[in-house]
Amino acid sequence: MHNSILIVDDEAGIRNMLLDYLETKYDVSTAADAETALALCDRKNFDLVISDVNMPGMKGPDLLSKIKKMHPKTCTVLITAYNVDDYIRLARKSNVSNIIPKTSPFNFSELDSLLFGLLTKNIFGLKRYMLPQYTHLGEFCIRSSHDAKEVREACVDLLLNKLGVAGDMRLLVDEIVTNAIYHAPSFPDGTEKYEEFTDVNLEPHEYVYLECGFDPEKYGLTVVDNMGRLTKDTVLYKIERQMSGEGVLDDSGRGLHMSRLFSDRMIINIEPKIKTEVILINYFSHKYRGYKPLYINEL
């Protein structure tokens, strides 16, 4: 049976575009405003609802909050023509962590991987976010602070040697890996296990895993830790804090903020207490003109 999706947007062009594309894979309904959408949700339990942010009458975030209350298992996604960054606070408030920008041309393959992940709860792995022609370049494991630098560099060099570009990956991977080594491992009471910039040898069950690869339109790198200490709320809070300028001079959330700023896509996947993944993706060309999306998946 197909998953059911509800599309809510007052812009007919967008509604029809999403309908045409998604109805080949899903059971799709549409609504032009929040009131109609709520009436539809009364009768049916949708697996996923995509809603525009700015609509006449009730706005997208309020609509999604209401639907979440009616059907807690429904996945929710916001879509907007405005700057996604402006809605991060709102997203946190209404418990939505995926916002798609309306780019031109629309990025359908990205929509595919997002919806698939949300609906199947199969969110982890760089390959999941790449085109079918994905080429896996290499994978690495970090076991101590001592070998972190070498491994990081090897991973970025692999990209550079193969593709000739790596954007700001060297800088960003440094930040993300440092976070993973020092901030992910914790004691059962939740306090951090290791002090930053000390020599750390991770225990056998603690590891940081790196993978990189590319497809015809983009390349990416992923950093996974098997601790899963990060939460969706923390990520949103930290990004928002850095974005508002509040955190300019300290480093809390700087890694996440910079990663979002300096890469074309940052996808964060979280399975609480099990696994955290930060995926960084750069496009070879700036084909999809528009704002950056917000992708945080928490199981």
């Binding site: 812009e11 007919a12 062009g13 967008i14 029809n16 575009m17 999403l18 045409d20 594309y21 023509a81 405005y82 309306k102 780019t103 031109s104 041309p105 629309f106 359908f108 528009g290």
Partner: peptide, 10 residues
């Protein structure tokens, strides 16, 4: 952006 995204997407 709204209509343009719809036009190009369609």
């Amino acid at each position: 952006i709204n209509p343009l995204s719809g036009i190009s997407g369609t």
